[in-house]
Amino acid sequence: MMAPALEFDRVSRDFALPDGRLYRALDQISFAISAGSFVAIAGPSGCGKSTLLNIAAGLLTPSSGRVHVDGEPVDGLNRSATYMFQQDALLPWKTVRDNVALGLTLSGVTRAEAHARADAWLARVGLAAFAAHYPSQLSGGMRKRVTMAQNWIIDRGMLLMDEPFSALDVHTRLRMETELLALWESRSADQPPPRLRRSAVASANAESLALQETGGQASQAGGDRETGGRAFQASRDRKTIVFVTHDLEEAIALADEVVVLSAGPAAHVVARHPVTLDRPRDLMELRTSEAFVDLYRALWVVLREEVIRSQRSAEATRG
């Protein structure tokens, strides 16, 4: 049995309020996410979704409880993950190409190669013509696409996404969701851009790929793990995606499983629901399908309570 890609173990988090009291944002959150799955975390605004994701990223430490990544306790930053933030996080002083290439250049890939691979990714997200532009010259949707390329290019096993599309208009958002699923569902081996770097080890890994594909034993591929095999192994499979959203429709449309958080303070998991809709999904049609609507109803009953509770507590603090 493989360790889950990400596991929250009784995670709580307090924040100090200006008056010195503690505000408990998260309370005893426990759940696990298996490798390669797409899990959406839904909850009312302000309940602690970003806080939870920051803890998963290692950017924030839990006040109590622990987080495990691939079975190992997180110590410092979560190096298996990249993070798509809710806000714009592109460096405004770098061109689109340099922004996409950033993860590569930081890890010591030569400029020429990093640029070549960035250009391949830009072509993939339809922004080849904008490589030399600065982020301020792009629309919000285009910037999100650059951010996607920036995150996918370094090809880590896990992608944390914090309401990545919430600032976009409905149509752009639908397109971005579709592109996200297409990226995630396409097996890495079919993708030219991330492969370039590994051309040297590709042939060595071809064997282990074939083995996995035919259900061969992992131990036979053991030798490859030592070389480029380790990174390759992870990218072989789908990324694990943790997608935070306040929009239940989006959560169901994209994910394999929806985790609903309660309203704050002391947010906790109130529901976990698998989403068994077939893949690949047609997001244009999905939302009107019967299976989708049934799921939506079932989960909305739960989430609605929390939304009402969070509005009430917001009014209480205001009044």
């Binding site: 990223a57 993950a81 990249t82 996080a89």
Partner: peptide, 11 residues
């Protein structure tokens, strides 16, 4: 967020 992003990218 710029700092966090660059750190997550491995800086």
């Amino acid at each position: 967020v710029l700092i966090d992003n660059v750190r997550m990218l491995g800086a």
